[in-house]
Amino acid sequence: MIWWIIYVCLGIGIVFNLLASLGLLRFPDVYTRLHAGTKCTTFGSIFIATAVMVYGLYEWWKGNDAMISMTVHSFLALLAILITNPTGAHAIARAAYRSGVKPAGAVVDELGGEKDD
């Protein structure tokens, strides 16, 4: 039973991580690639960290006392990913815009100075 939770979490995590790298290959410019590279890896990491946390709890319940710290430390690593990933993506997007990369095929660009109405 507990192994099925771990299998499902790992499966969802792998699927979204693979989708992230596929999106990185398929999308046309930096901004759309950031969409794939940030959202999907964060979501996949949440599930993979959950699987490791559940596994640590299971080992702890079986009587291996030190494994509770695997759960706690995985949670801290997940927290670090959740806070740093969107901030890093924002930094890259701003740097890309300021270094002159325009969004490819954009229907509207209100940052570029000209208004649409």
Binding site: N17, A20, L34, G37, A49, V52, G56, A77, A96, V101
Partner: peptide, 26 residues
Amino acid sequence: PTIPDRVVGLDTINTLVISGMLVYGA
């Protein structure tokens, strides 16, 4: 083609390596 593209790739690899480390630890 541009340097921000490479940085995006690097950032994605970093996140993947972090979750890989968690899995290897388990």
